[in-house]
Amino acid sequence: MAEAGAEDQEPSQPSWGEALKTVGRSLVERPVSVVSEIGTMAALVYSTARWAIRPPYRPRLLIDQLEFIGVQSIFIVGLTGFFVGAVFGLQLVDGFRQFGAENQAGSVVGLALARELAPVFSALMITSRAGSAMATEIASMRVTNQIDALTTMSVNPIQYLIVPRVIAGVIAGPVMTLLFFLIGISGAYLVGVYLMGIDGGIFIERVKWFVDVGDVQQGLVKAAVFGAALTLIACRQGFLASGGAAGVGRATNRAVVQSAVAILVLDYIVTGIILGEGLF
């Protein structure tokens, strides 16, 4: 009896045919789902743009979102900006000292922060703080019928929920990037000058010499693109949520992962376009 029971419970071994079929299916399904995701995202971008220009306009909602995405992110963006600048300064001065070029640290820190680190890190920080909260809030609204309630009250949910968040993301992203850049430079300066003993005047001069307005503009353009992307992804995942509390959790998780990946992919694409070097 017991033996028979044990035999019953033994898992059946999948055949080679089954395994190949599973691998084949995942090889086909994955690219198809990526294309489908890009398609629905393009449709959402179009709808958002369409509803953004239609009245009624709700400045109050935009101000609320600017406060949520921007003002409430100041501390975390400032804190990470300081430490990213500080550790970058530390590594560069240490590395450059090996061939006597530690005074070049200011130029490299400035360029890296302006073009890459400030827009990417500040967008990642906004994603972790505001993007996740945004996805959770909208997903909760979806599973508790609040979005349906908006529709039945003749209020378009895209116009009411997504448009103010995306516009706020596009505005707050560059502002946070600028803040990250300034605090990051300060962090690098403090570490380089007071801890590693390089000349403060030379550090500042190198930054001024190498970092021009175009570099900062490059970072700000990227930040605006990242701001739009992360808010759209968070809102979309919230909108697609289903299945109660578990669905809300999944939406938040997907929003954060997709936003982080999108920021890095877009960073490469936007950099390629700005530098005019081609993408591949």
């Binding site: 609204m141 609040q146 309630a149 003749s154």
Partner: peptide, 22 residues
Amino acid sequence: EWALVPIRKKFGMVFQFGALFD
């Protein structure tokens, strides 16, 4: 969506759990 606005104003909806904006 636009043409539905006056129609939807004729409706009031009470959802199962209220669906009040929390």
